[in-house]
Amino acid sequence: MGFLNWLQNTDQGIFLFILSFANAIVLPVGPEVAFVPILMVSHEKFLSYAMYCVVGNVLGLMLIYTVSYFWSQTFMDRYISQEKIEKGVDVFSRYGPWALVIASMFPVFPYRILVIISGCLKQRAITVFSFLLLGKTLRFFGYGFLIAKLGESVTKYLR
């Protein structure tokens, strides 16, 4: 019962922020791994916790964008295969920055690669960040809303 007590009696916002920031840069596991259980025990805080996740993730992606913007050729040659670059450029030529919204809403899409490619293609920063913010807001607030509405019944079922 110690873990549940820790989840209920501790503000998890900073933890979610750090996890989301790390996920945007290098961590392969999404913040949902912690976000969902935390909201299950304190679903009344979903607005603030979702905001921590959105801000942490978008700030981490801003860092990736900035690095790829200024060191694009080195970054692409070293860390991204030619096949992924071609796919990313194809996605941007088809869907424009809306590709960032779709990719950032679902954890299975390689949104980091699209952010790197958008930096390498020198897309406008305000456009990239606006679309990322939209996608991440829909993602985390959508999860939060569902858990806040369904969390009580799921928690009762699990007990």
Rank of each mutant, 00 (worst) to 15 (best):
F3H: 08
L4F: 06
L4W: 03
Q8S: 13
D11A: 01
I18R: 01
S20C: 08
N23H: 15
N23D: 14
N23K: 11
I25N: 05
P28I: 05
V29A: 09
V29K: 04
E32N: 12
A34P: 05
A34I: 07
I38K: 07
I38T: 15
L39P: 02
L39S: 00
H43T: 03
E44H: 15
F46I: 05
L47T: 10
L47E: 10
S48K: 13
Y49F: 11
Y49H: 03
A50Q: 01
A50D: 00
M51K: 00
C53L: 03
V58W: 00
L59D: 01
L59I: 03
G60F: 04
M62A: 15
T66E: 14
T66R: 08
T66K: 11
V67Y: 05
S68C: 13
Y69N: 07
F70T: 05
F70I: 03
T74A: 12
M76K: 11
M76T: 14
Y79R: 02
Q82P: 09
K87F: 08
F92D: 02
F92R: 02
F92K: 05
G96R: 00
L100F: 05
L100N: 03
V101R: 02
I102R: 04
S104I: 08
F106R: 00
Y111Q: 13
Y111L: 10
R112C: 02
I116G: 07
C120W: 14
L121E: 09
L121N: 03
Q123T: 07
Q123L: 14
A125Y: 13
A125P: 08
T127N: 07
V128P: 03
L132H: 00
K136H: 06
K136E: 09
T137M: 07
F140Y: 15
Y143M: 14
F145L: 15
A148V: 05
K149M: 12
E152S: 13
Y157G: 06
